[in-house]
Design a protein around this nucleic acid. Sequence first.
DNA 1: CGGGACAACGTTTTT
DNA 2: CGTTGTCCCG
Length: 656
Amino acid sequence: MKKYTLKRTDPEHAPSYLIPYEKELNENQLSAVTFGSGPSLVIAGAGSGKTRTLVYRVARLIESGVSPASILLLTFTRKAARQMLDRAAALVGTQTEKVAGGTFHSFSSSILREYASAVGFSASFTILDRADGEDIINLIRGRLGLTDRERRFPKKETIGEIFSKAVNRAVPVAGVIEQEYPHFAHETEKLLEILAAYTEYKQAHMLMDYDDLLVHLVRLLEKNEGIREALKKRYRYILVDEYQDTNGLQARIVELLGGGAGNVMAVGDDSQSIYSFRGAHFKNIMDFPTLFPGASVIKLEENYRSTQSILNLANVIIDRAREKYTKILWTKKGTGTLPALVPLPDEPSQSRFVAQRILDLREEGVPLSDICVLFRAGFNSFDLEIELKKRNIPFVKHGGFKFMETAHVKDIVAHIKVLVNPRDAVGLKRVLMLVENVGPRTEEEITGSVLSAPRITEGLAPFAGDRRFGEGIGRLSRVLASLEGRDLNPAETVERLLEYYTPIAKRRYDDHPKRLEDLEHLAIIARKYRSVESFLTDMALEPPSDSISDITREDPDPERLILSTIHSAKGLEWHSVFIIWAAEGYLPTTYAAESADDLEEELRLMYVAATRAKENLTITFPIKIITHRGPAFGRPSRFIEDIGEDVLETWSVEEE
DNA sequence: CGGGACAACGTTTTT
DNA sequence: CGTTGTCCCG
């Protein structure tokens, strides 16, 4: 092994620079970009050039002689990291490829695979998505005999939620139940029993859910000083984007890696904290200077995105927050047109209005791809989607429905999971239950046999010839044998499994042609990966966001309207933005009605939505709403009610 | 024991 | 509306 020493260069005293930083950045941005060593917090208002600042900082560090591999850029999605590094590459070249970047979860996953044995795992552990975890919880609940209907016991979804909240907020499960689920307080004992069994189950089968990735990384760093020190040396510059949406565990990871003399820069905006359901709290960002004593605070308040009219409305909205850390957005851009509030008779007319306005905007020269429709929840756009199809307006939708969660995709992926991690009992169960004449009982029997055998096919062997299952188990055994224990090529693996799966899909699904077509696309996606392990990790941590056919389409129409949940629109911007369903019960959602904190978060959601617009902002809501209980009168969202006409102009629309 | 048929339920946001 | 759970037949 070759040894060599890295030369450290102090960025403050670095040599001459090729990039004209002073020209490209304002004063505060420049001080963030050229910030020397130690901890720093950048409070960046919406549209204040936060991404630009991070991009230039990465470039500056590299230009100063910092080794790209010693920079860690933690972002909210991996796509965000990729885009920032691409932009940095345009400044300093391809060395940015060596920068470590990604989400906390993807970073944790790679470190944990590197040091798996130190946390009692094998490097090929499987990552469970939400539904997988719930399946295990259900299984355990059944085993503990907690299925009888007489006692009102929480659903598996609720149980999973309780556990996850406890982990992400670093509070005991009993506390979460007491606080938020008092009606289940009498079941606390049983829930703790399930939690213990769930934890044990995951360990025994080499499984980690999303939360475990963070928990195990924290544990690894806390308990192994050697590893912690090695990683601290490896990542000398840590940049954390969207810090307002990190939770206690993530903050702990940053603290462990960058505490002391570390160079940590956290960037975020407390007004845009919208992920409390994931354990994030906007106060985390305010606590940063406490966690990192001596941290310098840099504020970015000049907005480069929106017209002053849009910022005026945004400022009025956020001014209604009970708790806020005042930040008034301003811009040198002109006044622009007033944001509009448009009440419409009902949902179909809301859809027609939005579609019509979009066509008008396109006539005026705004490309479809620079227009976005935002909403609180995925289903809010269903009616609009029908209208858009009717009018042949092409669109993509972000957020809401995930095709990784569709049964057929999960079926194929389960087979691969089993090949990679033969102890993955969740995957195995899914695989076996697909075989004809195998039900819960038989599945358990076969799983027992497989888990105690050295190889899957050996475990299956006793059942392969069993006439009870016809050819089923035999076919499964053969396809697994042809793939087992080999260095698998992801695309080839998917294709071979697809061959095996086709008759199963035909038997189980009436709409199999569509589903099989989806799976062909999955094979195409798989081609991009060198190993099945990285394919699986990506499918779990960064599942493709569009529908499969959108991603792999030969000629993806770049001229497409964007539909998005507000959550998925974080950090993005468009020329014209529509916020639909701005009605009481929708934004804010009824679920938030109970808690003042939750209502505040809904308010911030409205703020995030409004600040996505550069030139045009149109807010709509239907007056007559059909709920499952019958028709009701929609009231405008309290967040945009009683705002002066000089800030938010009400339109009345007449339909011909 | 498996699986089809039928009923009931409840509907946010995401790594 | 589409999923999840229950019942009952083969």
